[in-house]
Amino acid sequence: MRDAGPTRRTVLAGLGALVAVGATATACTSDDNAGPSPEQRKADDDIRSRATSAASALLDRYDAVAAAHPALATRLRPYSDEINRHLTALGGSRTPPAAPPGEPVPPDPQAALADLAAREQQGSDGRLDDVSAASPEVARLLASISACQYVHANQLGSAS
C-alpha cells in the first residue's frame, strides 16, 4: 500500500518549478559588471533579515517540539540542522530565544509534526515571495531555501 504523501515525481516537479521561477526572476540584469545599486543592497538586506528571523523562529519551534516530544527529537534533527545551515548561508546566526515560545506545542506528536509541516510551507512560500525583489545571488539562495523547505513540509506532512 502506497503512502498518501507526495510521490518523488511530484516533489521533483515542485523543485523544478521553484528553480525555474528563481532562474526566470534572475535572468534579466541590466549590467553584469555593475554591482547592485544601493536600493538593491537595501532590499537584499531587508530580505535576508526577514529570512534569518523566520529561520531562527523555525529553529526555536523545532526545539520546542523536540522538548515536548522527546521521541521525535532524533527524527527532527536533520530538518533543524538544515534550517541552521540556511541561517548560516543567509549570513545570520542563531541567538537564544528571548522568551519562551508564544504558542504551545500540540500535545499529540502527529499534530506537532503537522504544525511543523505548515510552518515549513509558510517559510517556503515566504522565501519564494521575496525572489522577485532580490538580486540574482540572493534570489538563487532564496529559491534553494524555498525548495528545501517545500520538501521538508511534504516529508513532515506525509509523516503526520
Results as ranks from 00 to 15, higher is better:
L58H: 10
A118E: 14
E39G: 13
Y79Q: 04
T52V: 03
A118W: 06
L72H: 07
R50E: 12
S49L: 14
A147I: 05
A27G: 06
R50Q: 12
D81W: 03
Q149V: 00
A117V: 08
D31F: 03
A64R: 02
D31A: 11
V138H: 06
S56Q: 13
D115P: 06
T88F: 01
D115N: 12
A111E: 14
P97T: 10
A134K: 00
A99C: 08
S49F: 14
A112C: 12
V138W: 02
V105I: 05
A99K: 12
D60Y: 00
E137Y: 12
S146I: 10
A51F: 04
G91T: 01
S132W: 12
D81G: 08
Q110N: 11
D81H: 11
R50S: 10
E120M: 14
L76C: 03
T88G: 02
L76A: 08
D129C: 06
P70K: 02
R85Y: 10
A54M: 10
A66C: 01
S146G: 15
A112I: 09
D60G: 11
D108M: 06
T88N: 11
E39V: 10
A64G: 08
Q40P: 00
D45Y: 07
T24P: 01
D125T: 06
I47R: 02
P97N: 04
P97E: 04
L72Y: 08
D108P: 01
A114Q: 13
Q122I: 00
Q121K: 13
P100V: 03
T52P: 01
R77L: 10
P97H: 05
L76S: 01
A118V: 11
I145P: 12
P36K: 07
S80K: 05
P78H: 03
A143L: 06
Y79N: 12
T95E: 14
Q122T: 13
A111R: 14
A25N: 10
E39Y: 09
T29K: 12
P36T: 08
D31G: 09
Q121R: 15
D32C: 06
E103M: 08
Q149M: 14
R75M: 11
S124H: 04
A71C: 07
D129F: 15
R77F: 02
L128E: 14
H86C: 02
A139D: 03
E120L: 11
A64I: 09
R140P: 03
A134I: 08
D125N: 05
A143Y: 08
P106E: 04
H69A: 04
R75W: 09
E103D: 14
K42R: 14
S124Y: 01
A98E: 15
A54G: 13
T24R: 05
A98F: 05
A134H: 00
H86K: 00
I47S: 01
A139H: 02
Y79H: 15
I47F: 04
S80C: 02
R41A: 10
S49T: 12
P36Q: 13
T26V: 06
E120D: 15
A64V: 13
D115V: 08
A64N: 07
A57K: 11
D31Y: 01
P136N: 08
T26F: 10
A43K: 15
C148S: 15
E120Q: 15
E103F: 03
P38D: 02
D44K: 00
G92Q: 02
Y62N: 00
P109C: 03
D32I: 12
A64D: 13
N84I: 00
T24C: 05
D32T: 05
L116M: 01
I83Y: 09
L87C: 07
D32E: 11
A99Y: 06
